[in-house]
């Protein structure tokens, strides 16, 4: 196992169940600092649940979560707030605050966690909006005035607001056109390289997996199998074989 200080997120023995249905059973996962890890799995294997568990929206039935060296279940409120300021989350549908404009959405985490002057905050929000690939005039719009893809980009802009160390992305390229998705991959790659970001990305976009993921975690049989693309290609598990050797995988150049 890698050195303790190289691990951004460590999950041990996570159990998640909803009623009779067990989603995760003794799941272990280490996510290294500065890597882009893609999470894949069939419908209902608990990809989003796993992400919600890590970010504290879902309390696991058993197991421990350590983020940046802090045990989340034992952390004080102050420690928890510090950790929460160091991650950015993009939800599947953007989850933008509908009563705020896009620019105000991006500024919301900044207002909460920093004491930047209003003018600089406005500029930074505008910068994030442009970096996320939105036109400059999108800042004044309300989420209801945006298309699905634009909402996603606005969500990314908000996730990047505090220049987080860890970025959680739930299906970031779903609903984007191929050009936008490729631009998004580039953006994540650039940010990850220059900021040393750790990116946890739930995705079904095989192109994204190939283009930017260092490792891939496959949720299967209530556990996760993590490895590089080359390792997964050797895996004999039928679902993994089907996933990485299917027609679409070939189209993505795997």
């Amino acid at each position: 196992m890698a050195d303790e200080s190289d691990i951004a997120i460590s999950l041990r023995g996570i159990v998640n169940r909803f009623g009779q249905q067990v989603v995760h059973d003794g799941l272990d996962l280490d996510i290294r600092k500065g890597e882009v890890i893609g999470i894949v799995g069939g419908s209902g294997t608990g990809k989003s649940v796993l992400m919600r568990t890590v970010i504290g929206l879902n309390r696991p039935a058993a197991g421990s979560i350590t983020v940046l060296g802090t045990r989340m279940d034992k952390a004080s409120d102050a420690e928890r707030a510090r950790i929460e300021a160091s991650w950015g989350v993009l939800f599947q549908n953007g989850a933008l605050f509908s009563s705020l404009t896009v620019a105000e959405n991006v500024q919301a985490p900044m207002r909460e966690h920093t004491d930047l002057p209003a003018e600089l905050m406005g500029e930074l929000a505008a910068l994030k909006i442009r970096l996320a690939g939105l036109p400059a005039d999108a800042g004044a719009k309300f989420p209801s005035q945006l298309s699905g893809g634009m909402k996603k980009r606005a969500g990314i802009a908000r996730a990047l607001a505090l220049d987080p160390e860890i970025l959680f992305l739930d299906e970031p390229t779903a609903g984007l056109d191929p050009i936008g998705a490729a631009e998004f991959d580039d953006l994540i790659r650039d940010l990850q390289r220059s900021l040393g970001l750790t990116v946890v990305m739930i995705t079904h976009d095989l192109d994204s997996l190939v283009a930017i993921c260092d490792r891939i975690g496959v949720l299967i049989d209530r556990r996760i199998r993590v490895g590089t693309l080359a390792e997964h290609l050797q895996d004999e598990h039928p679902w993994i074989r089907q996933y990485f050797h299917g027609k679409r995988a070939r189209a993505a150049g795997i």
Partner: peptide
């Protein structure tokens, strides 16, 4: 070079127009 690349990317982002407050 990684930091310089980020700076270049940010510096080349055009049309950064802060939205005037409502």
């Amino acid at each position: 070079p990684a930091l310089a690349a980020l700076l270049t990317r940010v510096a080349e982002t055009r049309d950064v127009l802060p939205t005037p407050p409502r």
